[in-house]
Structure formats: structure tokens, C-alpha cells
């Protein structure tokens, strides 16, 4: 009887664990099932390399190059903002702040990470955009620039908290050794602590990249939504997640347009999956 209880409990936990694999396979299966039929209408090369996205024209154009470029530009802009701010605050919190200040700042960063993206989107649309129009005298405040700012600030807590973990796990003995050799605090940070935490810092940046490239609501609300290859950072773009979110509601299930949106999801998934594999690889190499 007891044996039966032991075994069944273990089995339940085992099945729960297997469920994670099932879900992942389910995700992969559903986007590929939904996405591959689009290649009856357009070749993979054309899908990826054509910049014209006119899914409702007759005949429709299913080229997502401008969407990919939109995603990458907005993400790059976000990282330009979030890497210095996130890493800077991580170093400050881990190396310079006093114990007290650290205990206040760390939970604040954690709280920041929990702010819903739709609220950031609201802020971008209703506050930042009109503000930018006034300052820069530009026709629209919903563009690469504003989306990068909002997205960047959203990613700051991710980079900051993960980098901070990596920095604080650098052994104290290394800092002491450096100081004892006559280095000052700043030299110790830059020459010893940051290099020793390199793997964790890079992982945090890749994770921030994955988060930014996949974030939907901010780019849906703030990036402007024009499927074009922009010529400057004050032009609107239509990143991949925004396209899916904006158009899915207006398509007929089983239409080429519907398949094409799932096709975009495949590309998005592949990009994030590669970034996840890179971090896995870094962590694994670090363990060895």
C-alpha cells in the first residue's frame, strides 16, 4: 500500500515535468502547423527577402523583410538604451551602493520588471509621443525612436537584475586581492569584477534582446505600424509581433493571410529560440 502511494506520487511529479515538454512541442507544432501552408503561396526566400507586405491586396504580397527590419531596429534601439542603464545600475547596486541602499534598490528594480507592458504602451502613446512631436517637430511621435525608448526602459530591469546577480556572485576574495595589489575600487570593478561576471552579463543582455524582440504591446501601440523600410529613426515601423497582434483579429481562419501571420510567428520563434540556446550554451560552458 505504502509502496503504491510512493510510486503514484512520484509518477504524478514525473508527468507534471513531462508536461513542460508537451507544451513546448505543442507551441512548436501549432505555429508550424499554422505557418507552413503559407509557403504554398510564397517561397521561403521571397517571404524573408521581399519588403512588400500587402496581405489584403489582390494578389497579396507576403514579404516580411520590412517587418523583420522593423523588429531588429526597434530592438537594437532598445538595447542601446537598456545596456548602459541596466548594466550601470547593476554595477552601482552590486559594487558601490551601501547595504541599506541596496536593500531598497533591488526590490524596486524587481517591481519595475512587473509593470505590465500595456501600461508602458499607454505611456508611449499618450505622453511620450505628443511630447516628441512638440520637441522634434516631427509628423508622428509613434516611431522607431519612441518605441526604442519605451522598450529599452522595459528591458532595463531584466538586464539590471540578472547582471546584478552575476556581479554579486563574483567571490569577495577577488575584489580583496585586487585592492590589496593597490588597485582602487573603480579599477577593481572594471578590470576584475566585470570581466569575472562576463558570462552572466552577456546572458542578461541576450535575455533582454529576446524579451525586446518578442514584446508585443509596446511595439503594437508605439512603433507606428507602417510596414516599410525606414530611412530614419523618426519613421514608423511595423515589428513582427505587432503585425501578428494587429492583423490576427481581422483574418479568416485558414486564409493565406492567416497562414502568413503564423509564418511570422515561426520566424519570431526561431530568433528567440536561437538566443535562448546561446544563453544555455554560455551557462553550460561556464559550469565546466
Amino acid at each position: 500500500m505504502n509502496n503504491f502511494k510512493e510510486l503514484s506520487f512520484k509518477t504524478v511529479t514525473y508527468i507534471a515535468s513531462l508536461f513542460t515538454i508537451v507544451v513546448l512541442l505543442g507551441i512548436i507544432f501549432s505555429i508550424f502547423l499554422g505557418g507552413t501552408p503559407v509557403f504554398q503561396y510564397v517561397s521561403l526566400t521571397k517571404f524573408l527577402s521581399s519588403p512588400s507586405w500587402h496581405p489584403t491586396h489582390d494578389p497579396p504580397d507576403f514579404g516580411i523583410l520590412s517587418l523583420i527590419i522593423g523588429s531588429l531596429l526597434v530592438t537594437a534601439g532598445a538595447l542601446v538604451i537598456s545596456i548602459p542603464l541596466g548594466l550601470g545600475s547593476a554595477i552601482y547596486i552590486s559594487e558601490i551602493a551601501s547595504q541599506r541602499v541596496r536593500e531598497i534598490l533591488k526590490p524596486i528594480i524587481e517591481l519595475l520588471a512587473g509593470i505590465p507592458s500595456v501600461v508602458y504602451g499607454l505611456f508611449g502613446m499618450a505622453f511620450l509621443s505628443p511630447f516628441l512631436i512638440r520637441i522634434f517637430k516631427i509628423p508622428t511621435g509613434l516611431n522607431i525612436f519612441s518605441a526604442s525608448i519605451i522598450l529599452g526602459l522595459m528591458v532595463v530591469p531584466i538586464i539590471s537584475s540578472l547582471s546584478e546577480d552575476a556581479l554579486s556572485s563574483v567571490p569577495k576574495s577577488l575584489r580583496e586581492a585586487s585592492l590589496a595589489l593597490g588597485a582602487n575600487k573603480w579599477e577593481t570593478i572594471i578590470r576584475i569584477v566585470v570581466p569575472a561576471a562576463k558570462a552572466g552579463i552577456i546572458s542578461s543582455i541576450i535575455l533582454g534582446f529576446g524579451r525586446a524582440v518578442g514584446e508585443t504591446m509596446v511595439v503594437l501601440m508605439v512603433a507606428g505600424g507602417a510596414a516599410q523600410i525606414p530611412s530614419n529613426i523618426f519613421q514608423p515601423v511595423r515589428p513582427m509581433p505587432a503585425t501578428i497582434a494587429a492583423e490576427m483579429g481581422e483574418t479568416v481562419i485558414g486564409s493565406p493571410h492567416f497562414y502568413a501571420l503564423y509564418g511570422i510567428a515561426i520566424i519570431l520563434f526561431v530568433i528567440t529560440f536561437i538566443s535562448i540556446l546561446i544563453t544555455e550554451f554560455i551557462v553550460m560552458r561556464k559550469k565546466r
Binding site: P171, S173, L174, E176, A177, S178, A180, L181, I192, P195, A196
Partner: peptide, 13 residues
């Protein structure tokens, strides 16, 4: 004034 610690603590370099 140089110092050597209890446990060897070479830098990861």
C-alpha cells in the same frame, strides 16, 4: 604593503 590571503585567490586570467 603586499598581501597574500588564506586561500589562493588568483584572478580568472
Amino acid at each position: 604593503v603586499g598581501m597574500v590571503f588564506q586561500k589562493p585567490n588568483p584572478f580568472p586570467k
